[in-house]
Write a protein that binds this DNA or RNA. Structure first.
Lengths: 208, 208
DNA sequence: GGCAGTTCCTACCGGACTGTAGGAATTTCC
DNA sequence: GGAAATTCCTACAGTCCGGTAGGAACTGCC
């Protein structure tokens, strides 16, 4: 049948399998616009051009939907970051590795702001299960940074263990840069911000 | 009348004037335990040992209640910080001033964790008017830090304006330390954390 | 003790959200 | 073209929340 000029009244028959990614797209959009509290099943359904029961055919409940969205966007970020990392880790100084890692991360963030927004913005006010998932992702990041620092600052073999604090500070600066890029807006490029942070790390962390 | 051994069924007659602070206390407790979304008028009333209409006798609506709570706790923090600041700002180096300011702030935070929790934790998922209020408080803090940096790093007269970024980084490290103290828990004292941050600033910010 | 005024509580309304049942439309397969 | 299976939509139940009306209990004053 030829399409009538009037709008479709019913959504195309796709089934849960093919509908899921479309619903996740809609949920991501709604979340970016309205935050966690505004991401209701109804609003997601509206954004997907579908009705609520269709959403429930794809996701058992609201938590499942948000968890699936979180997992997908987290995966996007991870893939982008890994792709941006230098291929050969045997060349260059540890400081350069920090710089490269930060640049890769911030570039990925700036290219996929919505992914970052949900992965790092859903930890407040979200259902406990979702918040826990976000915390786990962040803990993983902090641990990676801690290992990088360990390689980058061989002088501090002393296990006096200021390293956890420094790793936390580096992670918070990284998150802060991401926030500048995505939320506040800044005229700096990801590479410039990464350079600033890595210089602070290089100059400042040695003295501690 | 003598108190019966059985529990009071009705709350004491206090009136809005004397009831307000008690309700704010209850709201602070509920917020610390259940976060923003869990801070409903009913739960606040329960925590205050009172019914919902009594809460509405003291505060016109939920936003008013949260705004009042925010204002009170922010004031607590400000008073604590000012009290902890050095009396004479003419002695000592700028670096020492940064250290002293950070120590004052983090000490205040660790002594009033609930105040910090609401003042800096209500920005996500809260009603727009509340979130805006929190952002304003944070912007004020960042600006203060920027001015401190300006005094502390006279070498960078160059208005190349990396200063805003550095101020933001310092603010994020400060918040991170606060989070370590209040949320995550750490074995470091406020003074130790302040020292670490100020050393990072001293060593790292000069190179940028 | 008794009365006036204040304060509190029970009971309720309207609205929004989660989640579901059952019928209507579409697609597929022959 | 027509039947069967799949998919979607309308309509609704249940729950919780913000907010309110009106009557019951307490308090203070005489």
């Amino acid at each position: 049948m030829v399409e009538d000029p009037e709008r479709r009244r019913r959504a195309r028959h796709l089934g849960p399998e093919r509908r899921r990614p479309l619903i996740l797209d809609a949920a991501l959009e709604v979340f970016s616009a309205n935050g966690f509290a505004g991401t209701t099943m109804q609003s997601v359904a509206d954004a997907a051009g579908v009705t609520k029961p269709v959403v429930y055919d794809s996701f058992a409940n609201r938590d499942e939907l948000l968890l699936a969205l979180l997992a997908r966007e987290e995966q996007h970020l991870v893939v982008s970051i890994v792709a941006a990392l230098p291929a050969d880790p045997s060349v260059g100084t540890p400081e350069e590795h920090v710089l490269e890692g930060l640049t890769a991360f911030l570039t990925a963030v700036s290219e996929q702001p919505q992914s970052w927004r949900i992965v790092f913005g859903a930890q407040y006010g979200a259902a406990p299960v979702v918040a826990e998932r976000v915390r786990a992702a962040r803990a993983f990041l902090v641990e990676s940074l801690r290992l990088t620092l360990l390689k980058s600052l061989p002088g501090v073999g002393d296990p006096d263990a200021n390293l956890p604090v420094l790793a936390e500070l580096l992670a918070s600066m990284t998150e802060s840069c991401a926030r500048m890029l995505v939320v506040d807006g800044t005229d700096r490029s990801p590479a410039e911000l990464a350079k600033t942070v890595s210089q602070v790390v290089a100059g400042g962390f040695g003295n501690v």
